[in-house]
Design a protein around this nucleic acid. Structure first.
Length: 149
DNA sequence: GCCAACGTTGGC
DNA sequence: GCCAACGTTGGC
């Protein structure tokens, strides 16, 4: 089993929304590295740190779990969607996504707190210039964060 | 709104 | 394959 951190802008999809929906298709990823993580490495039961980005208080806000393996992202075929991709075909879909299910909300562990914790200094999401919306999390890092909750 | 950092595109 | 231009992300 692996551990991940997945970013979402709360205006687009928040932890509260996931708490209500129970499960969510993680559509809209349009970055190859992030897609490859979902396609090649994510398995059912993988644990996810749910992270709010581009908002007043960016940081970890909850826990989720991968509940469905990667499959084609319908939004790439929808001309009306912001995520429409005219170069993608049903025979050879370019974009895939997993589904995640709600586990729990946590207190906010903000960016400053993450950066201030030496044991978390190597977290991928904290790397300089990182923009990836999905990043792997070390089991050791996962443990440390769980103790902070 | 600013801007650093990075990914993608497209001309050559 | 190179690389400049452009677009996006995301913290501040």
């Amino acid at each position: 089993m692996r551990y991940w951190l997945m970013k979402s802008e709360p205006d687009a999809y928040s932890i509260d929304r996931l708490a209500k929906d129970k499960t969510a298709p993680w559509t809209g990823v349009r970055n190859y590295q992030a897609r490859n993580f979902m396609r090649d490495q994510m398995a059912k039961g993988d644990k996810v740190l749910f992270y709010h980005s581009s908002c007043e208080e960016p940081g970890i806000v909850g826990i989720a779990e991968v509940c469905k393996l990667a499959y084609p992202d319908e939004t790439q075929f929808d001309r009306k969607s912001d995520y429409y991709d005219e170069k993608s075909t049903r025979d050879n879909p370019r974009w895939l996504h997993v589904d995640v299910k709600f586990v729990k909300k946590t207190r906010l562990i903000g960016l400053a707190e993450l950066r201030g914790n030496k044991a978390l200094a190597n977290m991928r999401v904290l790397a300089r210039g990182n923009r990836l919306s999905i990043t792997p999390v070390d089991p050791a890092e996962w443990e440390i964060i769980n103790k902070l909750l």
